[in-house]
Amino acid sequence: MEIRRAAPDDLQGLVPLFDRYRQFYGRPSDEAAARRFLGERMARGQSVILLALDAGRAVGFVQLYPSFSSVRAAATFILNDLYVEPGRRRGGTGARLVEAAAALARETGAAGLSLVTGVDNLAAQTLYERLGWTRETRFLEYGLDLATSPP
């Protein structure tokens, strides 16, 4: 298996994976939106996508968004998306993607990585904790959905 940074030429294999990732989180299938979104992130340099390939076929990805920690006065990355094809899960692909993300962050001098996962996504939680990630207990996470909240 090969893990490498995705390029615009990889969109054909990446888009179906990203579409299935979104479906996992309850969104309807929309490959056109997936292609547009990923293409824009790549073109604008707004994310880093690492792609897992087996015999040249895309089988998983991780997407990182550059960010910053004001308290640490340092660059960080948000591990926002991790997806592995169902038939490839529990075979090490997810671990290799997360490890590659950590290596990339270290190489760029980032101070850390952060992520959020579903409270019911026990498989992901187990993976992250096995790889040395620690569960945050000092802070609460909040969100504001601008599409549904009053102005």
Rank of each mutant, 00 (worst) to 15 (best):
residue 15 V to N: 07
residue 37 F to S: 07
residue 31 E to P: 05
residue 28 P to W: 07
residue 120 D to R: 08
residue 139 F to P: 00
residue 58 A to H: 03
residue 89 R to A: 01
residue 39 G to D: 06
residue 49 I to N: 12
residue 91 G to N: 10
residue 56 G to F: 04
residue 127 L to Q: 02
residue 57 R to Q: 13
residue 130 R to H: 05
residue 108 T to L: 14
residue 115 L to H: 08
residue 70 S to W: 15
residue 113 L to T: 04
residue 46 Q to M: 13
residue 77 F to M: 09
residue 145 D to W: 01
residue 12 Q to G: 07
residue 73 A to V: 10
residue 31 E to V: 06
residue 78 I to Y: 15
residue 80 N to S: 15
residue 69 S to D: 06
residue 35 R to S: 10
residue 36 R to I: 06
residue 34 A to T: 13
residue 133 W to Q: 10
residue 89 R to V: 04
residue 100 A to H: 11
residue 47 S to D: 05
residue 67 S to T: 14
residue 28 P to M: 05
residue 99 E to N: 08
residue 47 S to R: 05
residue 15 V to L: 08
residue 136 E to A: 11
residue 59 V to N: 08
residue 100 A to D: 01
residue 69 S to W: 03
residue 46 Q to I: 03
residue 105 A to E: 03
residue 119 V to E: 09
residue 59 V to Y: 12
residue 85 E to M: 09
residue 102 A to H: 11
residue 69 S to H: 02
residue 113 L to M: 06
residue 44 R to V: 02
residue 121 N to A: 01
residue 21 Y to W: 08
residue 7 A to H: 08
residue 90 R to S: 14
residue 147 A to Y: 04
residue 49 I to P: 12
residue 91 G to D: 08
residue 62 V to L: 07
residue 128 Y to K: 03
residue 100 A to E: 14
residue 52 A to F: 14
residue 86 P to Y: 10
residue 13 G to T: 06
residue 16 P to D: 07
residue 14 L to D: 02
residue 33 A to Y: 14
residue 77 F to G: 01
residue 71 V to F: 14
residue 148 T to L: 14
residue 56 G to L: 04
residue 83 Y to G: 04
residue 11 L to V: 10
residue 5 R to C: 10
residue 48 V to T: 13
residue 44 R to M: 05
residue 14 L to S: 03
residue 78 I to L: 13
residue 145 D to S: 00
residue 82 L to R: 09
residue 42 M to I: 12
residue 72 R to M: 14
residue 26 G to H: 02
residue 148 T to R: 15
residue 105 A to P: 04
residue 60 G to S: 09
residue 117 T to Q: 03
residue 100 A to Y: 09
residue 51 L to T: 07
residue 124 A to F: 06
residue 6 A to F: 11
residue 130 R to A: 14
residue 51 L to H: 04
residue 14 L to G: 02
residue 50 L to G: 04
residue 5 R to F: 13
